[in-house]
Structures are given as C-alpha cells and as structure tokens.
C-alpha cells in the first residue's frame, strides 16, 4: 500500500539505510537542541538543514501532507494564543519596545513580540520535518529493534511494531463494518448532528473492538506458541549494525548540538537579541 499516511515506505537513500538507533538518537538530539535554543541564527541554520535532509529522504508530500497541515494549524493557534496571553513577552525578553501599531490596553504590537513569535515558529519548523522523516524512513521492526538496543524492554518495541502490523487489517475491518451498518440504515453522512454522528460511530466502534479482540486473542496465542517472552533478550531479524555513516551522523549530531548550545548561551541567555546596542 503505497502512499499511506505516515507509514514507513521502502526507498533507497542513505537516510533509509541508517540504523534506527542513529535516526532515533539524531531525532532526539535535534529536538532537544531545537527546544532549548531561541537563538535565531542557530534556528535558521537548523531549519535549512532539516529542509535539506527532508529533501534527501525523498519523502513525498502525500505521505506527510495531512499531518503537516495539522501541525501548521496548531502552530497558528499557538502563535495567536501567545499574543493573547502575553502580548509584551518580546519586550520582556529583549528589553526594548518598538511599537508598530498602537492597540488598546497592553495589546500594542511591537517588533520585539513579532520577532519572539517568529522564533517560536522557527522552532516548530525545525523539528517537524525531522519528526515526520523519522517516521516515514524507519522500518517499524527496525525501530522496535532500535528501542530495544537503547535499553527499552523489547515488549514495548514489539507492541509498537505489532500495532503497525494490524493497522491495515483494522482499517479494512472498519470499512466493512461501516458498509454493513450503512446498509442497515445507519447514515454516516454529514446530515446528522455531531452528537448523532458520534452515537452512530459507536455502532461501528463496538463491532470493531469485538472483532479486534478476537484478533488479539489469536495473535497472543500465536506469539506465545512461538516463544515470545521466553528470554530477557531477543535478537532481531531486521536489526542493523551501525555503519560508518551511522557513526558520522551521530558525531555530527553531537557536535552540532554542543556548538549550537555554546553559541546560544555564549551571551548568557537562550535568546539572540538583535535589538540591543
């Protein structure tokens, strides 16, 4: 099933060839850096880099488009909320106040506020492509193996992998059940009110849960019969050894993080201030 939203797709790029551990570590370091720093220069470099990486991973828009739009919406809400709740946060941080538009009460629009919110936006945009890319370029089984390798119980990793394994099955069950219920006269179209629709949704959800429970029963028996959980450790068919590219990527991520944080905090705080002097 090609092009399914937010699912792993096999492609041959160096990013796909990286071990899941590397990608997970990179993703964590990257997000951590992105969250700590408010330094615009660092953020701009990170944004440029994440776009380059995103491009190199050959990720297609249809794989992530919906989610990206959702994140953008969330970002807008966040920016508006920041302005509503603390319109003078920029002034507080940067120490100056350059009023652009006079508005009633404390809602004067300042350049500092705009700059501050611009930084928030940058933070979102630097992390988002990396998260999305991590999801669509990492084979779930390899991801499970990676989680296990960094010390997380393999039960957790396998739970994730097996959930992914059953997503297509549950989706097709859902369609079947929905059709059968529609034939019985339960209209799912937009005509009904939200509450009505929720109530009708339950008529799909319950059968879906019951038939999924049957599946869980079978699969847990099958897993047990083949020795799942026998030992504290297990090996992974799809596990990948770290290659030179992996080490280089990891080294780059670590160096980049240290450098970014050093640049960020060199002047004493998390913010880059273009307004001083």
């Amino acid at each position: 099933m090609a092009g399914r939203l937010l699912t792993y797709e096999e492609k041959d790029t160096w990013i796909h060839r990286l071990s899941g551990v590397t990608k997970l570590a990179f993703f964590l370091l990257w997000s951590f850096t992105g969250m700590l720093t408010y330094d615009t220069r660092v953020l701009l470099v990170m944004l440029a880099l994440s776009l380059v990486i995103f491009y190199m991973s050959k990720t297609e828009w249809k794989q992530v488009g919906m989610v990206f739009k959702f994140i953008l919406l969330f970002l807008c809400l966040n920016l508006v909320a920041v302005y509503i709740f603390s319109p003078q946060q920029g002034t507080l941080i940067y120490g100056t106040s350059t009023v652009l538009v006079n508005l009633p009460g404390r809602y004067d629009l300042t350049v500092e506020q705009l700059f501050y919110e611009f930084n928030i936006m940058l933070k979102y945009l630097t992390v988002t492509p990396v998260v999305l890319m991590f999801i669509v370029t990492t084979n779930p089984s390899e991801f499970a193996a990676s989680l296990n390798r960094i010390g997380i119980s393999y039960n957790v990793g396998y739970a994730v992998a097996i959930a992914l394994r059953y997503v297509p099955d549950v989706q097709s069950d859902f369609t079947k059940i929905k059709h059968a219920q529609e034939a019985r006269g339960i209209e799912m179209s937009g005509k009904a009110s939200v509450w009505e629709r929720l109530k009708k949704m339950s008529m799909i959800i319950f059968p879906l849960i019951f038939s999924s429970m049957d599946r869980i029963d079978v699969v847990s028996n099958a897993m047990e019969l083949r020795g799942f959980g026998k030992h504290k450790k297990r090996t992974w068919y799809k596990g990948r050894k770290l290659t030179k590219t992996d080490y280089m990527t990891l080294a780059f991520a670590a160096v980049f993080m240290i450098a970014s944080l050093w640049i960020t905090f060199a002047d004493g705080n998390r913010f880059y201030n273009p307004f001083s002097r």
Binding site: N139, P140, S141, A161, I162, L164, R165, D169, D214, R215, V218, V219, N221, A222, M223, R226, G227, F228, G229, K230, H231, K233, R234, T235, W236, Y237, K238, G239
Partner: peptide, 26 residues
C-alpha cells in the same frame, strides 16, 4: 487463522520470529 497468526511485518520476519525469541544470531 492464517491471517491472525501472522505476526511479523514481512514474511521473513514472521518466519524468523521463533528464532528471534531464541536469541539466534542474525
């Protein structure tokens, strides 16, 4: 249930499932 007992995300992984649990090297 041929469908329900398929555990792995691919054929190879499913076949290897018991071996993985037995810590057989890759």
């Amino acid at each position: 249930d041929t469908d329900g007992q398929f555990i792995g995300l691919t054929v190879a992984e499913d076949v290897a499932f018991a071996l993985e649990n037995d810590c057989v090297p890759q």
